[in-house]
Amino acid sequence: MAENSAAGTILNIEGLNVSYPVYETDPVRALRGIDLKVREGEIIGLVGESGSGKTTLARSIMQLISRPGRVDSGRIEYDGRDLATLGEEELRALRGNDIAMVIPNPRTELNPLVTVGMQIANVARYHLSLPRKEAKKMAMAMLEAVQIPDPTRRFKAYPHELSGGMAQRVVMAIALICSPRFIISDDATSGLDVTVQTQVLELLQDLVQQQGASMLFITRDIGITAHYCHQVAIIYAGEIVELASTQNFFDNPQHPYSVMLLSAFSHNPKLRGLWTKVVDAALEGAAESGCYFAARCVRASDKCRAEHPDMREMTDAHSVRCHHPVER
């Protein structure tokens, strides 16, 4: 996939820290010093396990961290504007219009009492100030664009009448109807079948390419990033541990955690064992000093347990946060 280095930066996240307070103990630090740049026309894949902070990152970009969670420090700049300084009105104009989010679990997020066609049309009515009729026409065109079978019938359907794949397409239609410049896809394809998933991914990719939009593609499935993203970022325990162009990453993954993730696809339990250390879940959260991954890492040394590693640029377009990166 071609590199897009000349294009300008559309999203710039610097030193973002987000935490959720917990009763009578230390707050959970969901994001710890996230630095991430997304250029125009670029698809960047963010991969991590559940609980690694992926969704929190998506929600902080949308300025939708729900209380009592809070942004402790750091800034998020979209198109040169600091999102934290915008008022609620300005944000509302931005969300769904300029920045759109495709969410997981579509059936819980759709309004069960409104037909899906109207839910799509309402977005167009609000953001594009279209009259009802036009909005409906546009919603119908959108349903066709996301390839829902029998769109005229589905337009009048309620969310519970749709299959998971169809509900996901409805959510995509809602996200894409205003032709956003920046799309966040939060695990949007995880519930879909492979053939549907490929179609949905192709659809997203086409839109990004046609309109010069950018996308932050959050997923648990590292396989998708290999084929649809320009860059791959691996997130572990709220921090990015490896960031590289897709080709560099898959040719030469350097963080032991990245290799562990990839080893999960190997059908050879012995090889997988080389990179996986079985630990008690209780031990995992313990490391506050040192590398957060040290307890689960097969390469951990005393240095890892004492000193927190910084992000280091190893080669061009390949950075790793590790004292002992994997060498090949």
Binding site: V194, T198, H227, F250, L262
Partner: peptide, 15 residues
Amino acid sequence: IGLLSSVLLPNPNLE
């Protein structure tokens, strides 16, 4: 064939 060719394995060189 259509089903199998839509599987995405984590290796950008294998498509």
